[in-house]
Amino acid sequence: MTKNTKTVIILILAIILIALIPLFALKGAEFGGSDDAGSVMVEEITGTEYEPWFTPVLETMIDGELPGEVESLFFCIQTGIGVGIVAFCMGRLVERKKWMKED
């Protein structure tokens, strides 16, 4: 195993640990979005319930909030598009290196 491979493995483990530890350390926490925490804070500061003056276009079109499952679908599509492009490009580069003459 090269030095780089080791570094990468250690880094990936660290990433997974940092991401998962809060989930186990804080049992029963809600893990809502911090964007929502932001809107709560706006209400706290202004003292009144803030009425957003513009609702998202899609919510206007479907008359209501986006269902949770559909929202996760869109998030998956976003991830999928991204991963697809990254993986395709990385695959090309890896393959190319195999055929390149060692310079």
């Binding site: 809060p22 979005g33 911090s34 580069l93």
Partner: peptide
């Protein structure tokens, strides 16, 4: 351009992943 595409796609992936954090909310 291949790297430009990857950088863009990287933003796509990374900003779609909501990760739990120590404060008990996700970002």
């Amino acid at each position: 351009m291949i790297l430009l595409a990857m950088s863009g796609a990287f933003i796509f992936v990374i900003s779609s992943l909501k990760i739990p954090s120590v404060t008990g909310s996700c970002s």
